[in-house]
Design a protein around this nucleic acid. Structure first.
Lengths: 333, 333
DNA sequence: TATAGTTACGTTTATCGTAAGTATC
DNA sequence: GATACTTACGATAAACGTAACTATA
């Protein structure tokens, strides 16, 4: 058994059992992969794939088990590489973040700014996508971290730590009738056409639940994946916007008024996740601390090693989480 | 990076940083290992060992981290092998048990007997040793299971499940003065010279605690690692024996009388352990069930996958454990 | 001086890429 | 007929073992 055979196996599985595609992706020849797969099957004495003639139709049950261990092995190989890189140089490297629009656009810029000043030698990549997409990037090892609010595909392979709490707020143009009212009720809010996030984005799930609990069915006239689009339509008078408070930019959004509701919307929790058992480099710990100061290096390291340990569970539930933007008690921005 | 390099690294670490010894153990040449280590260090760009001239004196910090991931990798390689073997044949294989004398001598024989009838194709190995030794065998992958009572070196790599509960009992020759008394108190017992287990063997820790709690310091005139020796000295009138009740063999020990104490000795729990994340073969699940019928295949499989899961923790603490031998309520054998 | 690790070298094996062949869709 | 996997083959490279060398304890 060789590590490359496992890499080939993984690549085939990730490319819909298409060996040619996998070969292309690995910059190698298709017969080479074909042969190594046969060799591995021969060595282990079991077929890894169901075949119809010369086409791979599906993986066998054993194949799936073997792939599972193979992926673990390849992750640990990456861990060894990362540990070695870390040892010879803790200032240079890569930081790959998979995240949603809200974070990439409003929350991360000042943090990345700070990070780049502190670690100029680290190349930072920000991959943007929907919650399911960013979860997939993490699982496939294309990103080191995922940052997001909405339920991210939480396979047992992922460790998710709470980063901060935030609230939705209502935004209207300065001349809107609501702009003159104080904290508004959900009932009052539901009288207006609403512009807000797409389902599954930026806490939309919580919003819907809040309205449902109040027995209201607001008229949502437009939904978008990001607050920039929402704000634009609010400016055009399409309706009342509901966005994350962190999505308001002082200096740019002064033509809008932000209002809280009474009772307040439910809090949302944005989390940062990484692969279970991943080797985190020094600058990664510092990045986490910049995003969420309560997540110290030792605690995060423990969570990476053993996310189910009681001490980590305690961290997940009992921690005093910082709030970004105004808290529920403040009424008006 | 190659799997063999990791095997070499592990072998060196396990042979006191002696490359020649490691080479001998792996049936390969010493220069071969030497070279592969250099190549790995070169590829990773970090030294794995501290050297004084040409001798390895210690592992570097990175080296230890890398070794840690290397061992995980090699275990998963074994898991792949086992999964493949399982798939092509679930009747043949190996069952390697590391255990202490008490289990090997009194508890396991009928179970192994039953197992061999059910799985004649499985080669069974029983490695006997002290509790620390058997823990080491498991950690080094020389055994699939460890079975024992006393605190076994419980690294995070090991999953320990409770198998059964048992009690100590007092044994004396038929003509001994105690043989005529009913349940005897600890105070009465402490009037006699005691023959029992060595420290660290077969629940000796619990025994000492029981006496200490009663404010007694019995005169222990002889200690041995196994009950056969203890019984022999009891027959010779050296003193009163305290052994595990399971160590009494009907038909062979009828010249001895077993007595319980009042209050009873504390219960002991014998556990079965295996490596975390190990791939368990079908016959291994059945073996566990033969030893401890309450440990079903699904529960054990879940414990192997994720020993810290809440459901597994519940299994560890809340389970109704079977008792081997008379329970604390029965007074006299 | 004995033990242990490195360097040097030749053999053998295996991996990879190109090119031709063959079976599905 | 187009796409996709397999077989065949040659070049390159890497791993292994033997033997000679060197440094430590």
């Amino acid at each position: 058994m060789k590590l490359q055979q496992l890499r080939y196996l993984r690549a085939i599985a990730r490319h819909n059992l298409n060996i040619s595609e996998a070969a292309q992706h690995l910059h190698t020849s298709q017969p080479g992969i074909s042969k190594q797969v046969r060799l591995l099957e021969e060595e282990l004495g079991v077929p890894l794939f169901h075949r119809s003639g010369k086409h791979l139709t599906d993986m066998t049950d054993v194949g799936k088990k073997i792939l599972h261990y193979g992926e673990k092995i390849l992750q640990d190989v990456d861990n060894i590489r990362a540990a070695a890189d870390e040892a010879c140089d803790d200032q240079n490297g890569e930081l790959r973040i998979a995240t949603t629009h809200s974070q990439a656009r409003y929350v991360l810029p000042p943090i990345i700014d700070h990070f780049k000043t502190r670690f100029p030698g680290v190349r930072v990549q920000i991959h943007q996508g929907s919650p399911p997409q960013v979860g997939g990037m993490l699982a496939h090892g294309e990103a080191d971290f995922v940052i997001g609010t909405d339920p991210i595909a939480h396979s047992g392979q992922m460790v998710l730590l709470p980063a901060y709490r935030w609230y939705h707020c209502v935004v209207v143009p300065r001349d809107h009738v609501l702009a003159k009212e104080g904290a508004i009720t959900l009932e009052r809010l539901a009288e207006f056409p609403i512009v807000t996030y797409l389902d599954g984005f930026t806490g939309r799930t919580k919003l819907d639940a809040d309205f449902k609990r109040a027995g209201l069915t607001p008229e949502i006239v437009l939904t978008a994946a990001d607050a920039d689009v929402i704000k634009t339509y609010v400016r055009h008078g399409m309706g009342v916007g509901i966005i994350a408070h962190v999505a308001l930019e002082p200096g740019y959004d002064d033509d809008l008024v932000a209002l809280n509701t009474h009772p307040a919307f439910s809090p949302n929790i944005t989390r940062i996740g990484f692969r279970r058992g991943a080797w985190l480099r020094g600058y990664m710990f510092e990045f986490i601390a910049m995003l969420a100061p309560h997540l110290g290096a030792e605690q995060v390291a423990r969570a990476a090693r053993d996310p189910d340990a009681p001490a980590v569970q305690k961290l997940l539930t009992q921690i005093k989480l910082p709030t970004r933007g105004p808290s529920r008690s403040s009424v008006r921005a």
